[in-house]
Amino acid sequence: MDKDTEARIQQLEETLAHMTRVTDDLHEVIARQDADIALLTRRVEMLMRFAAEQQAHAEGSIPLADQRPPHW
């Protein structure tokens, strides 16, 4: 092989190594975000259940889910 071909191959290998590193880094970010989203979803569900229970136990009030919207 001539020097030009070897230089091109080396450049391609460096680019591939860089792209592999970027892909691995992005994979880690996506995995962490997926875990964060799952945790936040569970917390929102818990808060919604808690709010619904509080409304159900409030005396003399109609649960928000059973009330008509103000534009009716």
Rank of each mutant, 00 (worst) to 15 (best):
V44F: 02
V29P: 00
T20R: 13
R21D: 12
P63N: 08
W72K: 09
A7Q: 12
W72F: 14
L39I: 03
A58N: 08
A17M: 08
M1L: 06
H27K: 07
D25T: 03
R49I: 04
T15L: 15
V29S: 02
R32N: 07
V22W: 00
Q10N: 13
E14D: 13
D24H: 10
M1W: 05
M46K: 09
D2P: 06
L47E: 07
E6R: 13
D4S: 12
V44W: 01
Q33I: 07
Q11R: 15
E14P: 03
Q10E: 15
L12A: 15
E53P: 00
T41R: 10
F50S: 15
Q54C: 12
W72P: 00
T41P: 01
E13R: 15
L12H: 08
R49D: 09
R68Q: 09
R8F: 11
H18K: 12
R42S: 13
K3A: 11
I62T: 14
M19W: 03
A35K: 11
M1Q: 07
A38Y: 03
F50T: 15
Q54S: 08
R32D: 11
M19F: 05
L64N: 15
T5E: 10
A35T: 08
R43F: 04
D34I: 00
E59W: 07
A35G: 01
A7G: 03
E14A: 12
Q33P: 00
D66E: 14
V22I: 11
L47S: 09
D34F: 01
D25P: 01
A35H: 07
L26M: 14
A31M: 11
P70W: 03
L40S: 08
E28L: 12
G60F: 04
D36F: 02
I30V: 15
Q55S: 09
L16Y: 10
Q33T: 05
S61Y: 04
I30F: 09
Q67D: 02
V29F: 04
T15W: 04
I9W: 03
A51Q: 09
D24K: 14
E28S: 11
L40W: 06
R43V: 13
G60E: 08
L26S: 09
Q11M: 11
E14V: 08
F50I: 06
D34N: 12
D25S: 09
R8L: 14
I37K: 04
E13H: 05
T20M: 08
L64G: 14
R68P: 04
D25R: 11
K3S: 12
T15S: 12
T23Q: 13
Q11H: 10
I30H: 07
L12D: 05
P69Q: 13
S61R: 11
Q67K: 11
W72R: 07
L47T: 03
M1C: 06
I37S: 01
I30W: 06
E28D: 14
A38Q: 12
L16W: 06
D66P: 01
E6I: 05
A58T: 14
S61K: 14
W72V: 10
